[in-house]
């Protein structure tokens, strides 16, 4: 039985000091350049929009057939859509689906890709062959066309199902890359020592290898989010998934194919609003990647 000896207050303070320092260090990383501040702020804004946005408006956004494609005004800062609904309201309420499905897709991609890559690279042999054949199969499936086909039988109305499917079809590349890194790491001396000590494979994978590939995985997480945003908006843009006026892809579809926004200035804000949101979001993620890179690679901070 292990005895638990309570720490004295001054000892507890000494123990939490490095944690606080680390947190301060991460904040400093985020705030080090204007680009990162911008990226962080935009992501924070869109996250906030996704969380509280739908509560700011009625569930069923009001329509106004007498104000179709109205220009920007105080009442409608971004104008109105094809049925006179406020475009700002559509953007705000539509953020949740876009972000939630993108995050889920990225999480699924990371979870499957990392697990498959680590297991394949570490255990090798039959496990490696089996996992990599499945990975090759996933890689050979043309993702976007598959999604279009799937959309005929799968209801993408929920961000969870959209995220899940995007994640399931998108993990192949990450698995291959993680496997390569694992293969390289497993020959390193510290892992040979760990094996020599008789540590179980699970411990070596999660405690020894994973931290070493974590920077790469973190970068992929963010890139997967941008990829998922493009994919889901693309699907909605093509009009092959459930129709929801507040979806940014649906907005783009209607703006281009029905509203004549490409040639008509009247519907321009309706086209530009979701487009700029998507661009801002992806730009913010890319800007933040820099900070993540530094966070995981302390050497970069000295440069």
């Amino acid at each position: 039985m292990t005895a638990i000896i309570p720490l004295l207050p001054e000892e507890a303070g000494a123990a939490t000091a490095p944690v606080r320092r680390r947190r301060r260090g991460r904040w400093r990383l985020l705030l080090r350049t204007p680009g990162r501040v911008f990226g962080f702020a935009v992501i924070a804004l869109f996250t906030l929009m996704a969380i509280i946005g739908p509560y700011l408006y009625p569930r069923n956004l009001p329509i106004d057939p007498s104000a179709i494609y109205a220009g920007p005004s105080l009442a409608h800062p971004l104008g109105t859509d094809f049925e006179g609904t406020d475009v700002l309201a559509l953007i705000v309420t539509g953020a949740r689906y876009v972000l939630l499905s993108a995050v889920i897709a990225a999480a699924v991609t990371i979870a499957i890709g990392t697990a498959a890559g680590l297991a394949s690279g570490y255990y090798r042999g039959l496990a490696d062959s089996s996992i990599m054949r499945v990975t090759d199969f996933v890689l050979t499936i043309p993702g976007f066309p598959l999604l279009i086909v799937l959309s005929t039988v799968w209801d993408f109305g929920s961000p969870y199902s959209m995220g899940l499917v995007l994640g399931i079809v998108g993990w192949g590349g990450l698995a291959r890359a993680v496997r390569s890194q694992t293969l390289s790491l497993r020959e390193r001396s510290f892992l040979e020592a760990a094996r020599g000590l008789g540590l179980p494979g699970r411990h070596i994978i999660w405690r020894e290898i994973l931290p070493n590939v974590a920077p790469y995985i973190a970068m992929n997480l963010l890139l997967s989010i941008t990829g998922a945003i493009y994919a889901e908006v693309g699907l909605f843009f093509l009009g092959v998934v459930p129709f929801n006026t507040s979806n940014w892809g649906v907005m783009l579809n209607i703006a281009v194919f029905s509203a004549g926004a490409v040639t008509s200035p009247q519907a321009l804000t309706y086209l530009l609003s979701p487009l700029i949101c998507i661009l801002l979001l992806t730009l913010a993620i890319v800007l933040l990647l820099n900070a993540v890179d530094e966070w995981f690679n302390p050497r970069l901070r000295e440069i």
């Binding site: 329509i63 094809f82 279009i148 109305g157 009009g239 998934v241």
Partner: peptide, 29 residues
């Protein structure tokens, strides 16, 4: 792609939902 039908159904969706019948629009490819 049937833009007139889709736009029309969006209005119906809005009207029925406001009336108390939650309505969604499902598009065939």
């Amino acid at each position: 792609g049937f833009s007139d039908w889709v736009a029309g159904s969006s209005v119906i969706k809005s009207e029925l939902t406001s009336f108390g019948i939650p309505t969604s629009v499902k598009l065939a490819p």
